[in-house]
């Protein structure tokens, strides 16, 4: 009975997250696209929790909520048609993309049926969070610290890149090194 409920919830999340992921590229407003993407992530977060990786799943949702908001703001700022008044269909190399997407799906989806994966379920899923904590600050301390430093440098880099004052003067001027030629007519 319990397994049946778990299975039902899993398929709900699974179908939901795949359908919403597909809808991301099939909607007329970037805003809706962002909401669909978040729904897809929330579904995956749910599946992660079902698999026992509660911490990862919840952190995924926590992180993605902020990220989607930033994404929505960036889209309204820079992208045209945020309200979805016009149909949105902005693609290139569409056929290649479809083939690549379908191909990678088929290849990856066939893997578990072709490869004989070992069947070793996690013995104590209820301890998973504590184990992760011990791992983070124990054996994998260096990896964890590296991840932290990477994020910090990404943050600083992002601020520097997005800032109005580039390294060689104001960014609108096309902040080139003084010795280089100014940008040609390819601009904007």
């Amino acid at each position: 009975m319990n397994g049946l409920i778990t299975d039902g919830v899993f398929w709900l999340f699974a179908v939901g997250s795949v359908v919403t992921a597909f809808r991301v590229f099939r909607t007329d407003s970037m805003m809706r696209a962002a909401f669909f993407l978040l729904a897809s992530f929330a579904g995956v977060g749910g599946i992660l929790a079902l698999l026992g990786a509660e911490f990862l799943g919840m952190v995924l949702i926590l992180m993605m909520a902020g990220e989607m908001l930033v994404m929505a703001i960036v889209m309204v700022m820079f992208m045209m048609n945020p309200a979805g008044l016009n149909p949105m269909w902005m693609v290139h190399q569409h056929r290649v993309a479809v083939v690549a997407g379908a191909g990678s799906f088929l290849a990856l989806a066939s893997l578990p049926f072709v490869v004989d994966l070992p069947d070793r379920p996690a013995p104590r899923p209820e301890e998973a969070t504590a184990e992760l904590g011990t791992e983070l600050l124990g054996g994998s301390m260096l990896v964890f610290q590296t991840a932290g430093v990477t994020l910090l440098s990404a943050m600083i880099g992002a601020v520097v890149i997005a800032h109005r004052n580039g390294r060689f003067g104001e960014a609108e001027q096309g902040s080139l090194e003084p010795a280089l030629e100014p940008p040609g007519e390819e601009k904007g």
Binding site: E54, M58, V59, A65
Partner: peptide, 10 residues
């Protein structure tokens, strides 16, 4: 849940 704090924050 063991991650009640994270669920609340999420």
């Amino acid at each position: 849940p063991a991650t009640g704090f994270v669920v609340f924050s999420a």
